[in-house]
Amino acid sequence: MTRKIIALTILLLATACVPPIVATPPQEPIKIGFYSVTPQIEWNRSMMSTRESWTIDGYALQALRFYTVGDGQTLSGQTDPDGKSPAFHKSMLPNEIQEFFVETLAAGGWAKVKPSGLKPAKFGSLPGFRFSFTMVEKDGLEYEGMALGAVKDDELNLILYSGTKLHYFPKYKPAVEKVFASISM
């Protein structure tokens, strides 16, 4: 009996570490923090406390991630007491947020991270910004991406879409544009 309880406890602890993956029903609004988005197609969705991630073919091929980052936090929502990790600060202007994002990717082992096309953009009804980027995975695979963000109540809200430059990024780019356009508050 004791063995069964231990095994069950281990199983429960293990499953607690892996976020559940569910499908997003198309045309239905999905609430993410203070805003909602309405996907036009079905995505596989996994949720964690500080962000949630969507994909269709697998996260290594393409990923749509939604971040909410507080003042002084890293992109993953952690606080770094040593100040050695790139962190968001509420006084940052869009150029500096783009810089923070590039620094975060470089610190995560991505090579040749190159942002481009930073411009003002609406995040739902909020004034925000968007930009594109390219980067190379440590084994040489090229990726492309785009980001839409806005700061509200001292928190950075960032939606990132990235995928392999060949095939997977362009494949769902139009669908992600529709997700960006669907933001409502």
Binding site: L93, N95, S116
Partner: peptide, 10 residues
Amino acid sequence: AEDRAMIQSY
């Protein structure tokens, strides 16, 4: 500049 539109908005 790639960020021309952003800087113009500033």
